[in-house]
């Protein structure tokens, strides 16, 4: 399944806000399949890194309490239009993805 990683930037309260949306089930491992009664295995993003112009800006560690299709927001006063953003994430099953964007707030 395709796991899109979308990045959007906007100006918010004098800072550049970076919004990251990842298409991911964020399965807790605590749920049961209603039809078969079997536990649904956990499948969630554990770590997501934001790099600004090649330098890490923030690293988010996530647990099973983060909602399906996580939407994370970060702010930076330093980031300006044209700066390069790179998002990379990795989940508990070893799936990983990278996305790049340019700040356009």
């Amino acid at each position: 399944m395709a796991r899109d990683t979308k990045i959007r930037t906007r100006t918010q309260e004098g800072a550049t806000e970076i919004l990251v949306l990842v298409n991911h089930p964020m399965e807790t491992g605590l749920r049961k399949d209603k039809a078969s009664g079997k536990a649904i295995p956990a499948h969630f993003i554990q770590e997501l890194t934001i790099e600004l112009n090649g330098k890490p800006l923030a690293i988010a560690s996530m647990g099973i309490g983060v909602s399906e299709n996580p939407l994370l927001g970060f702010r930076s006063k330093v980031a300006k239009n044209g700066d390069k953003l790179k998002i990379s994430w990795k989940d508990n099953k070893g799936e990983a993805s990278t996305a790049e964007a340019v700040v356009d707030a």
Binding site: I50, L57, I59, A60, M62, S67, F74, S76, K77, V78
Partner: peptide
């Protein structure tokens, strides 16, 4: 739920 390590980013974080 989540824990972010900030390295130069502002004191802000949002999630669902």
């Amino acid at each position: 739920v989540a824990s972010v390590a900030l390295n130069g980013a502002d004191g802000y974080f949002s999630a669902r």
